[in-house]
Simulated scan of single mutants.
Amino acid sequence: MAAADVQQPPTQEPAPALPDYLTNPDAALGDKDAKWRYGRAPDYSKTRKVFADTKQMTHEAGSLPDLVQNLVKNWEVEASFKSNISDWRTIDQEKYSFAINGSEPEGAEAMLKVGTYNAIIAPNEYYSPEYSDFASSHKTFKRMMPTFAWEVLEVYSGPPTVAFRWRHWGEMKNDYVGFNNKGEKVTAKAHGGQIDIQGVTVANVNDKVQLQSVRTWFDPMDMFRQIAPNGVVKKEEKPKDMSPADAIDEAQAGLKTFEEQELPDRTIQTAKEVEQTIADIDKKEADEASRQEDLPADHPAVLMASNSEGGAGGCPFMPGGSRSEQ
């Protein structure tokens, strides 16, 4: 009797590996080729420690809440610190939009321009995006709360429509200084207590689990009620002829903050600014060369500024620069 043919089960393709921004909350921070807003990736180590020490939920690795939590954390890093939308790996760049509390949806460009805080907070008696720029918004909130952790509390539905409830919390260690809807500078004294806000987000994702539409609902006034629980704040006119960021620097002179919360040096330039700087230098050198040609033939030579060893006019703080003895 012939042996019966034994059918082998069909070979199954291995499941594709999950993107790292779903499995690692710090995946985006390792993108070395990305263009970072301040020339380098930020340091989130202290915020991550506060998250681990004070979170309410512990999600199993690889579970839906864990994956959603990692996705949003990487998105926040990209939205806050990657200055080229083409470097944002957590979004569907052709379809991405966000809206807060039923507002008109906007694209990534809007958030890139004004910053995450200004994009989600409506004008009110404590704060207004209309009188705050990207730099001042980060100084207002990140200096007040040196760490501002975020976690997923519950996930109600899975892809492609992901609905979840979240929590954002920190400790008010320094004074709140911001600008309200009247353009006034508002100061609230630090109380050292916790600020804890919660909300709900519904997000559509594509087959790569990249964000397409993000719709969030929360009460931003809940945060300000916790910042000034007794309603006691100081309001005064904003200093004239001073940017919002500089006005905050003046109000918080001497305040020491973690590197994560402090904006890096303003000397870091964009590619366009670098091109302009080079053009200005070339023009200056051309003008100086032209003046040399206009001098009489018997005029003593005029030394150009140089960084060479012993060169006149070299910068005393650069290698090779000269410095006269005191």
Rank of each mutant, 00 (worst) to 15 (best):
D207F: 04
V200P: 00
D87G: 10
T270Y: 13
R167L: 10
V155D: 04
E184G: 03
D246N: 12
M145V: 07
D282E: 15
F317G: 09
S136L: 03
D246T: 14
M221G: 02
H191I: 01
F141H: 04
T47L: 08
T147N: 06
A79S: 15
G102R: 09
I120M: 07
T47S: 13
K235I: 12
T161S: 09
I268T: 06
H299G: 02
A135S: 07
R48A: 07
G107M: 11
M145H: 00
E60V: 12
Q269T: 13
A190E: 14
K173E: 14
Q12S: 09
G199W: 13
E237V: 15
A4W: 00
D53Y: 10
S306E: 12
A119F: 06
E151A: 04
P239E: 05
D207W: 01
T187R: 09
D196A: 05
H168Q: 14
P25A: 06
V50P: 00
I248R: 01
R291I: 01
P316K: 11
A279L: 09
D92H: 03
T257M: 13
V205S: 06
D298M: 09
A301T: 06
D222H: 10
L18K: 06
I91S: 00
Y96K: 02
V68C: 02
A247H: 02
R291D: 08
A203L: 01
A149Y: 00
D5M: 07
D33Y: 02
E262C: 06
C315R: 14
S132M: 15
Q194V: 14
T257N: 03
E13F: 05
T58Q: 14
N101L: 13
A279N: 13
P296G: 09
K189V: 14
A2D: 11
G62Y: 11
V200Y: 05
S97W: 01
M145N: 00
